[in-house]
């Protein structure tokens, strides 16, 4: 019996307006040290976290979107983004930052971390988890 559990972090808030998105990232990065099967879900306003071209040059908040690019280094390689949530917001996959990881088991081939799933598929994915964290 393996003691690896399936952890899913469910991200539901837009970045910047509240601190949830950044807090979630920090928990994910710290939790990544424990060698569990980690995935991230982006639903509702959470999909805004992955919007490309975030630019803080005129704002007084730090642009933390580059941290999502480091997730691959922390072996966090499954980012599920809900299709319906994007559509409700006039967004498509092209509007998101390209995020990739290098697959150690496949000669370091570069692969996409973002997987667009439907709401029904998201429900299924949640059902398969051992532990769910909601941010």
């Amino acid at each position: 019996m393996s003691d690896i559990k399936k952890f899913m972090y469910v991200n539901r808030r837009a970045p910047y307006g509240t601190v949830y998105a950044l807090e979630s990232l920090e928990v994910v990065l710290i939790g990544a040290a424990f060698d569990q099967d980690v995935s991230l879900a982006f639903i509702g306003d959470g999909v805004y976290q992955l919007k490309s071209d975030q630019d803080s040059s005129e704002a007084d908040q730090k642009n933390f979107s580059p941290i999502y690019q480091a997730l691959g280094d922390y072996d966090v390689t499954k980012l599920y983004v809900e299709k319906e949530s994007m559509e409700e917001r006039g967004l498509s996959l092209d509007d998101l930052m390209p995020l990739t990881y290098e697959d150690e088991d496949d000669d370091w081939a570069e692969k996409d971390s973002i997987r667009v799933v439907t709401r029904d598929e998201m429900k299924e994915l949640m059902e398969q988890q051992d532990v769910l964290f909601n941010f």
Binding site: L29, A32, A33, K62, N63, F64, P66, I67, Q69, A70, D73, Y74
Partner: peptide
């Protein structure tokens, strides 16, 4: 500069 975080040891080691 690139990622806006200081990497954990095992991430640094791998990188």
């Amino acid at each position: 500069e690139e990622y806006q975080i200081a990497p954990a040891v095992r991430v640094l080691t791998k990188a």
